[in-house]
Lab assay of single mutants.
Amino acid sequence: MDVFMKGLSKAKEGVVAAAEKTKQGVAEAAGKTKEGVLYVGSKTKEGVVHGVATVAEKTKEQVTNVGGAVVTGVTAVAQKTVEGAGSIAAATGFVKKDQLGKNEEGAPQEGILEDMPVDPDNEAYEMPSEEGYQDYEPEA
């Protein structure tokens, strides 16, 4: 019985440690998101679009440190934060509304985080759909 109880105690310690790591990862992701939003706020009209992409990228980098179902929630929060940063930029006159959601080359930025393969159960990952990809044929 002692062996059984000791095993359960060790398992509990492992769960607590994993929860603490997840909590730490979420806190880091939130900190990076805040950094990115402050970065966007300090940019001029020309830099705002690039700044919004930076927020998304920093958040995406930190999301990889967070495991399990938390990833889905962090990704949703990050996307809403990026959308909010863009709205703030438009409201303050840093950028025109028609410039939001495009990178410096004018290509749409939507789907940055949505296409990231995420499995809350950590069982399997699927690649994003290939609808947006084109076949590449090298020139002879």
Rank of each mutant, 00 (worst) to 15 (best):
K12C: 13
V77P: 02
Q24R: 14
P117I: 06
E130G: 11
V52W: 12
I88L: 11
V37R: 01
E83K: 13
D121K: 06
Y133H: 10
G67S: 12
V118W: 06
L113A: 06
G7H: 06
L100N: 08
K45E: 00
P117G: 09
D121A: 05
Q109T: 15
A56M: 07
A140P: 13
Q24N: 12
V63P: 01
D98E: 06
T33N: 00
Y39N: 06
I112D: 10
V82R: 10
L8M: 06
V16G: 02
V15I: 13
D115Q: 08
K21L: 10
E13P: 00
Y133I: 04
A30W: 11
G67I: 13
L113M: 12
G36Y: 14
V71F: 11
T22H: 01
V52L: 15
Y125E: 05
T44L: 12
D115G: 14
V82S: 05
V16T: 07
T92L: 10
D121H: 10
T92D: 02
M127T: 07
P117S: 05
G7W: 15
G93I: 13
V48A: 05
I88E: 02
K23Q: 08
E35S: 13
A89S: 05
E139L: 07
T59Y: 13
S129W: 03
A85Q: 02
G14M: 13
V95G: 08
K10I: 15
E61D: 10
T54C: 14
G25A: 15
A124S: 11
K97H: 11
A17M: 12
A76L: 14
F94M: 04
E139D: 13
T59F: 14
F94I: 15
E123G: 12
E126Y: 07
V48C: 04
K60V: 03
F4P: 00
A27N: 06
L8R: 00
T22A: 04
Q24E: 13
Q24F: 13
G132P: 04
E13C: 07
S9E: 14
L113P: 06
A17H: 04
K45L: 15
L38D: 01
T44P: 01
P117V: 13
E126I: 12
G47L: 13
A53E: 03
M5K: 12
Q109V: 11
E123W: 13
A17T: 05
V82M: 15
Y133K: 06
Q79H: 08
V74F: 08
V55A: 05
K34Y: 10
K32E: 00
V49K: 11
Y125Q: 09
D121I: 09
E126G: 07
E61C: 07
T75P: 01
K58Y: 10
P108Y: 04
T33M: 15
E139W: 08
K96Q: 07
E104K: 05
G36Q: 10
Q24I: 13
H50S: 06
V40L: 09
I112R: 09
G68W: 13
A30H: 02
L8S: 00
V49E: 02
V70G: 02
T44F: 14
K21V: 08
A90S: 08
Y125V: 11
A90T: 06
D98T: 12
A90K: 07
A90H: 14
A89Y: 13
G7P: 01
G67M: 12
D115N: 12
P120S: 08
M5A: 03
M127L: 14
K96R: 09
V16I: 15
G14A: 15
P128T: 11
G14R: 14
T64R: 14
A78R: 09
A29G: 02
P138F: 06
A90I: 02
A27D: 01
G7D: 00
Q109H: 12
V15P: 00
E83C: 10
K80W: 10
T33C: 03
A56K: 10
K45S: 04
E104W: 08
E20K: 11
S42A: 14
L113D: 15
A19K: 02
A78Q: 03
V77G: 03
E104C: 02
G132T: 14
T81E: 03
L38M: 13
D115R: 05
Q62V: 10
E83L: 07
D98R: 11
S42C: 05
F4E: 00
V71W: 12
Q109P: 05
G106Y: 04
T75S: 08
K43I: 12
K97E: 10
V82W: 06
P108I: 11
V40S: 01
A78W: 15
E137A: 08
V3M: 07
E130F: 09
A19D: 00
Y136E: 03
K6S: 03
T33H: 01
N122I: 05
G86F: 11
V118R: 06
M116I: 12
K6D: 03
S87E: 12
K102L: 12
A29E: 00
T22G: 03
M127E: 10
K23C: 14
K45R: 11
A30F: 14
L8E: 00
A76G: 06
E110I: 06
T22V: 15
G86K: 14
A85H: 04
M5D: 00
V40P: 00
A69H: 09
D2T: 04
G51I: 15
E13D: 03
K34Q: 01
N122D: 10
E28F: 13
T75R: 04
V74Y: 11
V55Y: 15
E20C: 07
E46Q: 03
E28I: 10
Q99V: 14
A76E: 04
P120L: 10
Q134G: 10
V40M: 13
G41Q: 05
V49F: 06
P120H: 11
P117T: 13
V3A: 03
A89F: 15
V26N: 00
E114D: 13
V95T: 12
A29V: 11
I88W: 07
K80T: 04
D119R: 03
N65D: 03
M5E: 01
A76Q: 10
A30Q: 01
Q99D: 15
K23H: 05
A90Q: 08
E28M: 14
E126K: 12
A124Y: 12
V49G: 04
I88D: 03
A78N: 02
D98L: 15
V15E: 00
Q79E: 03
N122W: 06
T64W: 03
Q62I: 10
G101W: 13
S42T: 04
K80H: 11
M116K: 09
V77K: 03
V74C: 12
S87K: 12
G31M: 15
P138M: 07
V26T: 01
D119L: 14
P128G: 05
K10V: 12
F4S: 00
A19Y: 15
E139T: 06
V82Q: 07
V82I: 03
T54V: 07
Y133W: 10
G132R: 13
S9I: 10
A69V: 10
A53P: 01
G41Y: 13
M1I: 00
G73W: 10
D98M: 06
T22S: 05
K60H: 12
K60C: 11
G25N: 05
E28N: 03
T75E: 04
G132Q: 10
Y133E: 10
E28L: 10
E46C: 07
K43F: 05
E104T: 12
N65E: 06
G111M: 15
K21D: 00
A107Y: 10
K32S: 02
K43G: 00
V66T: 03
G7A: 03
A11N: 00
V66S: 02
E114V: 09
E57L: 14
